[in-house]
Design a protein around this nucleic acid. Structure first.
Lengths: 224, 224
DNA sequence: ACCTGAACACCGTTCAAGT
DNA sequence: ACCTGAACACCGTTCAAGT
């Protein structure tokens, strides 16, 4: 924007980490984690595969940057809610929905400490626990539990999405899982058998929220 | 300590899925997930890489079998405890410690639905919730929360172990993480700053158990 | 300084050929 | 039926050579 010494006859834009990360997210959204290769990325950006290494250390770095980008959008979107309990649910559902929209992210979030994404989620939960008046030591344990639980659900959702790629019939998926669980030895898997019947009619998002509420209720019960 | 019924004149033993999975676990324990390649496995078993495909569908199948093997040992080890609350803690710590001993498993558990390992953990928790007298519908949500939370912690532990491979000084690791958190913008990351001070002195295993207790307390509070 | 793209050192998986 | 191992179709990453 300063000097117009460069005639733009070369390429549309210079390469930058920002542009690379955006392109990576596009590829990931379109084809999942396996679709992100340096060759595909280079083709998408009309450059050589080696050029990418001038802006990104390696593939792990690129994946972390992509994850962080998406999470940042989620967490900053969450405005200050009046009720801290409701705000915690909003943060949790924000992460849940983001993972739903970017299926590749679930596996990443639960695998990498994502040195930047983790504090963001932590802050989202922890700030509200303070507002709830939870004692200091309990805040740490509780925020930790909320984060771990959320990332755990994220990972499993990603795994499920991986098993049933596109718009596979969700009902069919659950029915298949229930049937498989029902096939296990009834003596050793008594509880699993009982739950198998409830599997087809349960809602992932609702059950996720139910878990958040359990941790919240436990926090208030144990640290009044 | 094997029962040697066959004259071992050919090779030590015929190839079998059991032997392959055992060898895979050895390689994984010794060198992490990247150490398990079909070439290394074939060399370890003194066979060709293609031979493995006669007993195992592909690498995912092999990893799932290895995970399931380890989890099966953990869950069956847990004897019937008198107090259901204590039994739930025992199952949880069993999975936690198994992941600690087999660092590669954390990432796998949180990534694959592990169609066999998942019901095992589910049953471990759920059976005790029944014993506690939790109502049916609440049992499903609660067991689900316990499983997701446990797998979430598993994934993060694995990620941490990946960052600091061998016997890296744990104190140094936590201090480094705390320092990094302390470097974040204090205005945006107020809670993270406060928690950073507690990071170096906290115990992973204790905090994991604290989360289990939160979910348990929440279950009893919301479904009396 | 940034970009190019061939080259390197690997992978998982397949398959004709052996026993 | 089971095993062998070369071959295939990929990877991430590097680096001399270009601009």
């Amino acid at each position: 924007m300063a000097t117009r010494t460069k005639p733009a006859d070369r390429r549309t834009d210079a390469l930058s980490k920002k542009r690379i990360v955006e392109a990576a997210i596009e590829l990931l959204d379109a084809g999942g984690e396996s679709a992100l290769t340096f060759r595909a990325l280079a083709a998408h950006l009309a450059t050589g595969s080696g050029a990418i290494y001038h802006h990104v250390a390696n593939k792990d770095d690129l994946l972390a940057a992509a994850t962080n980008d998406v999470i940042a959008r989620v967490v900053t979107e969450v405005a200050g809610d009046a009720d801290p309990r409701e705000a915690i649910r909003t943060v949790a559902l924000g992460v849940f929905d983001a993972i739903d929209a970017h299926a590749w992210m679930g596996a990443l979030l639960s695998r990498t400490p994502s040195l930047v994404a983790l504090p963001q989620i932590f802050e989202g939960f922890g700030g509200q626990l303070q507002a709830l008046g939870i004692p200091d030591r309990a805040q740490f344990d509780s925020a930790s539990a909320l984060v771990s639980y959320t990332l755990g659900v994220a990972g499993q959702n990603a795994a499920n999405a991986h098993l049933f790629p596109h718009g596979t019939d969700r009902a069919a998926f659950l029915a298949a899982a229930a049937a498989q669980w029902a096939r296990l030895d009834p003596a050793r898997y008594q509880f699993v058998h009982k739950v198998a019947a409830q599997l087809p009619e349960h809602d992932d998002r609702e059950q996720f929220l139910a878990g958040i509420d359990l941790i919240l209720a436990g926090t208030e019960a144990l640290a009044p």
